[in-house]
Write a protein that binds this DNA or RNA. Sequence first.
DNA 1: AGCACA
Length: 331
Amino acid sequence: MEANNGMGMGAQTLAPPPHHHPHQNPMLLPPPSITYPPPPQPPPPPPHAIEQHQPYDPSYNNLYHYHQQEQIDEFPNQNINTLFVSGLPDDIKPREIHNLFRRRHGFDFCQLKYTGRGNQVVAFATFFSHQAAIATLNTLNGTTFDPKTGASLHIELARSNSRPKRLRDGTGAYYVIDKRTKVSDDAHETSSNDGDDGSDEPSGTNKPESHNEGGFDAVESADKTVDPSNAGDKDSTEKALGGVLPPCSTLFIANLGPNCTEEELKGALSRYPGFHVVKMRANRGMPVAFADFEDADQATEALQGLQGSELPSSDRGGMHLEYARSKMRKT
DNA sequence: AGCACA
């Protein structure tokens, strides 16, 4: 296993940028001089919930740890486990948000928030660890949420962690926060609102991206908690996720540097359990690769772990991984 | 944005 890793690659070059996403607002990275309130990280991440999905030992000497420890006291947002999601259609349902995140590694719970400005809706998704949050950020950011409108998700780290409203027994998996002023009471369920004439907006600033204003503004009106019993339509939600392919044991890897080699990729991929083989081929100059794993779950671990990470040969930013459209020919 | 090999 370690044998195929003997190419002396600089370990640090592999580490996925923890939060340097191209779309990320630099404001989220405060200078170390700023002292933030003690990270509101209440109960330590319930270990059982993570262990469930995390195999490991081998994969876990992957470089997240390394990177995390290196930066943890310099950047307080290493303690943020919550993602801020914008770019959602205004007829989004809480259950859709939940279905979007529920299968993600380390997912804890989420909240849908009607901001009250126009019909704008944002969401917060909280994970059991910062790393898990980042992995999902990398995976889902920019994906097309509604193929009809082309609306794509914008995901960033939230400014502060969401607090679960109460019970954590699986029935409290998602919440709704409704800041809308008056409006007809039935507006949330019957809005097939498409004509965006903007006439229903009170006035005031109309920023396209409303940020997590304080984080804890949340959680009022307990009775608005949605009944998870209607949460069974993940089909429609996942179909609505236009760009996202179904899990596959083979991964498609793009955005590699022109000098990337199979050996180099193998070095990175073989850190993940279940890795079988990688094949590269040039795509009009730029190489792409296919990496085969034992099963889709193991492919998923690698996808999330390596998403956005750079190889020594990378020259165009981090590599981009997706599930392949078809499994690698097995021989 | 780029998805092959049988």
